[in-house]
Design a protein around this nucleic acid. Sequence first.
DNA 1: TGCCCGATTAACT
DNA 2: GTTAATCGGGCAA
Length: 191
Amino acid sequence: MPQLIRRAFFRRSVLEVAPDLIGATLLVDGVGGRIVELEAYHHTDPAAHSFRGPTTRNAVMFGPPGYAYVYRSYGIHWCLNFVCEPKGSASAVLIRALEPTTGLATMRRRRGVKDERLLCSGPGRLCEALGVTHAHNGLALDAPPFRLYARDGAIEVLTGLRIGITKAVELPWRYGLKGSRFLSKPFKPKA
DNA sequence: TGCCCGATTAACT
DNA sequence: GTTAATCGGGCAA
């Protein structure tokens, strides 16, 4: 039986937490799957929403670790983050892709697609599949509707450059599960 | 108040 | 490969 992830898990640097979450299982109201792709954002990082200080939108990032930060992307999609590090450091991991395992029919209905690879492969797609909205902003990750199970068994984690940003593009803060078919985009092979 | 643009996606050519 | 959709945040005035 996999171990439940509790809030203390997030009381570390986002750069330690992010690779540890690869292979973990995320469920929202019993629907979800295995985390196969993440990106780290840090308060000293110009690409992070928290870089310019606290605002109404990013307030949760400046609160305690172990909570969900949900924001609207391009006025259209929702994106889900987990707040990390001790309170005030304003770091978070963006959940970018899941391998769907639980509640496939629900996810297909919400997404309007049949192909499993299109259900949760992308930050906006997985929020739609799991029913994550602004209503989840600020909720604790170790209480309903969230459930998080630690990775069970050995895996290999890939690292690479983050996607879709224009600042601090050189930081290798994207993490992925090696060999997964459910990544939002392939990782560049090692040179 | 007005303007620009984004941690995206899907539907194009 | 390119581009429209769509809107709130952040910053200048």
